[in-house]
Design a protein around this nucleic acid. Structure first.
Lengths: 341, 341
DNA sequence: GTGAAAGCGCTAACAA
DNA sequence: TTGTTAGCGCTTTCAC
């Protein structure tokens, strides 16, 4: 391998000082156009690239952004947060950052260790995805490092969230337009704000339409939102119940799929007997039968927004709190038939 | 925030020199037990953690491992390589490394840019996942940085691969045991060694069983291995063909799912008319109807192995080339009925 | 076993 | 505009 060049080699070759080279590398200060061009061409000629760790040490900026996920989110088979992560990856590159991914326990004490990147000053900002214990939010606040939440909320912390209200409204309105009156809901973990909002809006829209949701139509007792939680919730609603809903809005696609499984096993035809819709637009919704009507969430875009916001925060250092809501849209597929009774 | 401590603070407090502290930090050289304990307890007391970039600069080791994926693999909806990536993430933490993920074009020239981490000396080793242009392999070889391939092969380069031969054999034997004789194959991109091996072994096993695969049973003309390629391949085989296979082994689950879709749309019952098996054991195989028989691949484990190997290579600096093959097992589900004719 | 000193490659005052 | 000079916080010879 050819010898690795340093900023010194560039300076020598250009007959200029280190600091001038540094200035053009960082596009800072004033350098005469002639010298700038000269330096640039030498840099190109030598294929010189400043070394990350040297820069990091001198500037106290790592060039990295941390991405924190709680373990239970990480291990979920459906890669909802993975897609958000991939979105951050993509955007980070545009800004010359790298993403360092790590997982943590629900709370600071429950975790085997604090993410090393926080201890070793190896990130300039942090993105936290999904629900996380408030102890973590407090811990990171005290680090005085820019951070924000994705698909979660906390007081005085910037975040990127989903327009859950609109999504829920679109689904319920779609059912109503389809002639459904007895519209149910299955959900779990109402402490997750996204789930909570979907449930709340489901109720509001029905009430606004003059329908009071019966307790026999919905179940929000599950502690999680996996497909087996959906299965269990469906069982509770449809097992020996004389006031069954004709449509189910599930808090997410995973639950919708579990619900469908229960219904199919028990002789209900979808969408003839029961219409179903989910939320998130995960890949699996395309493979179930019938294909799942759902609400599309722009996961990559959320990651991308998060990175852009963090980069701003790192640069500006002002503590403005921003709350960004990303739009959703209804994706109508086969699991919702039109009802005409 | 409390002031950030440096190695100097530790040295001062311990009444020892910087180098002694450094020795215990790195667990190197000889330090008296008494001093070692003393230093360790001071480190703990101050909650001191060495700063990554300073270490990096001094030791010329970044503490990062690069993970390279070609764009087409990255954007595949099914997160096959994502799972490998997550495996590396998990293992990397155990070794105090971080993974820097990036994507590149198929070949060096086609790519908008060389991964920054290679230019800025920001990784100590590199993992490449999936098929990639040989220009990349050459380029990285010339960097004299430890690297290896996952699910791909190249001469004189260490790698981690799947036991495709055994997997293919398990599937074909399963069909044979089920009474099938006319066993087909659908695949694409035979230049990918994994696909090629599956196809080759499919043929060998049939021949060994005294069956010569008819050209009407298989199709390997697709240029890729997505579900729509599977759909197209199925169309070619089952559309106007008087010698149809009764079982299909698809090169991967995505193709199998596409194939199933074609068959169902055209009135074939699975597994009654046609049995199907895939390869990879992706999540979606659980959601199709009937659920897909497949070959399980330990993706996270492959990532984990890759990291362990890279860490060794970074430490030992010897150029031993290792070829690791990870095992597979048959996962029997509903898409393969037993045939009794 | 331990300390002194040099330096990794860069940035950022401050002078000039 | 440009150069000089200190470091950034750590590792690593090389003496002692």
């Amino acid at each position: 391998m050819k010898k690795k060049f340093t900023i010194r080699d560039v300076a020598k070759k250009a007959g200029l000082s280190l600091s001038t080279i540094s200035l053009v590398l960082n596009n800072k200060g004033y350098v005469s156009d002639a010298n700038k061009q000269k330096i640039l061409s030498i840099i190109k000629e030598l294929d010189y690239h400043p070394q990350r760790s040297a820069r990091g040490l001198a500037s106290q900026l790592s060039g990295n952004i941390g991405f924190i996920l709680t373990e239970d989110h990480f291990s979920q088979s459906e890669p909802f947060y993975t897609r958000i992560f991939l979105g951050t990856e993509f955007e980070a590159r545009k800004h010359n950052y790298y993403i360092l991914l790590t997982t943590v326990g629900k709370n600071v004490k429950e975790t085997y260790e604090i993410p090393r990147f926080l201890l070793e000053h190896n990130v300039d900002g942090v993105i936290i995805a999904g629900k996380i214990g408030s102890s973590w939010i407090e811990y990171i606040s005290n680090k005085h490092i820019p951070f924000l939440l994705v698909d979660y909320v906390a007081p005085k912390v910037s975040n990127i969230t989903i327009d859950n209200r609109t999504g829920a409204e679109l689904v319920v309105q779609h059912f109503l337009r389809g002639g459904h009156k007895k519209i149910g809901f299955i959900g779990g973990d109402l402490r997750h704000p996204s789930i909570h909002e979907r449930f709340a809006q489901y109720q509001s829209v029905l009430l606004a339409a003059g329908i009071t949701p019966s307790e026999q139509w919905y179940n929000v007792d599950q502690s999680n939102t996996t497909s087996s939680d959906g299965y269990e919730a469906a069982k509770k609603i449809f097992n020996s119940n004389d006031n069954k809903p004709t449509a189910i809005f599930a808090a997410n696609d995973a639950m919708a799929i579990g619900c469908m499984q229960y219904l199919k096993e028990n002789g209900f035809r979808i969408p003839k007997d029961i219409a179903i819709a989910g939320f998130d637009n995960i890949e699996a919704g395309l493979h179930v039968e019938p294909r799942l009507t759902t609400v599309n969430v722009h996961r990559e875009e959320m990651g991308s927004l998060a990175v852009r916001r963090i980069v701003e925060m790192v640069k500006e250092k002002n503590g403005v709190v921003t709350k960004t809501i990303t739009p959703v849209e209804l994706v109508v597929r086969d699991s919702c038939g039109i009802r005409m009774d």
